[in-house]
C-alpha cells in the first residue's frame, strides 16, 4: 500500500484505511501523530500520545469520564474521531497543573475528598475548569447543570459541588494561576 509510507508532503487528515498523519495541539504543544483513521480522540490521547489521565468509561456518551476540553469546551473524547480535531486546542487533565503547582480545582478536590476511587475525577476537573472560566461565581444549580454529563458512583456529588465552589472562591481571590 504505497500511500501508507511517509509521504513527501504530510497529507493531513487524509489517507488510507491504515494511516492518517495528524498534527494535534494538546496541552499547548504541537504533537505529530500517525494513526488509524478510525481511532477515537480518546484512543489517540492514551495510546499514541501516552496521556492516560483521560479514562475509558461507557464508550457511549453516558458517563463523561473521557471528557477533555476542545477550545475550552468539554467534549467526550470517546465520541470524537482524532482526525476531526486537527488545529483545535485540546486540553487533558495532564494540562491542568502548572509544573508542580496544582490547579485550584485539583487542590480543592483533594482537600475536600471530592475524589474517592478517582476514575471520574479527570472528567469532572476539566468540566468544572470550563465552567469556572466562563462563570467565575456559579450558583449551585449552575454547577449541577454544568456537571450533569459526568457520572460519579462514589461521592454522591455533594463534595464535588463543594470543591468546585471552594475552587471558584480561591480563584476569585487569587486571580487566574496555573494550568492553561
Amino acid at each position: 500500500m504505497p500511500e501508507a509510507r511517509t509521504p513527501k508532503k504530510p497529507r493531513r487528515a487524509r489517507g488510507t484505511k491504515s494511516a492518517v498523519h495528524l498534527l494535534l495541539r494538546v496541552n499547548g504543544e504541537d504533537r505529530e501523530v500517525t494513526t488509524a483513521p478510525h481511532r477515537t480522540l480518546l484512543e489517540t490521547l492514551r495510546e499514541d500520545l501516552g496521556l492516560t489521565g483521560t479514562k475509558h468509561g461507557c464508550e457511549l456518551g453516558e458517563c463523561g469520564t473521557c471528557t477533555v476540553l476542545v477550545d475550552g469546551q468539554p467534549i467526550l473524547s470517546c465520541l470524537a474521531l482524532s482526525a476531526d480535531y486537527e488545529g483545535r486546542e485540546i486540553t487533558t487533565v495532564e494540562g491542568m497543573a502548572d509544573g508542580a503547582q496544582l490547579h485550584p480545582l485539583q487542590e480543592t478536590f483533594a482537600d475536600l475528598g471530592a475524589a474517592q476511587c478517582g476514575y471520574c475525577t479527570p472528567g469532572f476537573l476539566l468540566t468544572a475548569k470550563a465552567l469556572l472560566e466562563e462563570k467565575p461565581s456559579p450558583s449551585r444549580e449552575e454547577i449541577r447543570e454544568a456537571l450533569a454529563g459526568n457520572l460519579c458512583r462514589c461521592t454522591g456529588y455533594l463534595k464535588i459541588y463543594e470543591a468546585v465552589e471552594q475552587a471558584a472562591a480561591r480563584m476569585r481571590e487569587e486571580g487566574p494561576r496555573g494550568g492553561r
Binding site: A13, P37, H38, E59, L76, L79, L81, D84
Partner: peptide, 26 residues
C-alpha cells in the same frame, strides 16, 4: 457522513454501521 459524531460513533463501535469510508463535514 460525520458531523459531530455523537450518534455515528456509537453505531461504528457496535458495528451496526461498517462503512468503508467516513466523510467528515468539518
Amino acid at each position: 457522513i460525520i458531523a459531530g459524531g455523537q450518534d455515528l460513533l456509537g453505531e461504528l463501535k457496535e458495528r451496526i454501521a461498517t462503512p468503508g469510508r467516513v466523510v467528515s463535514l468539518k
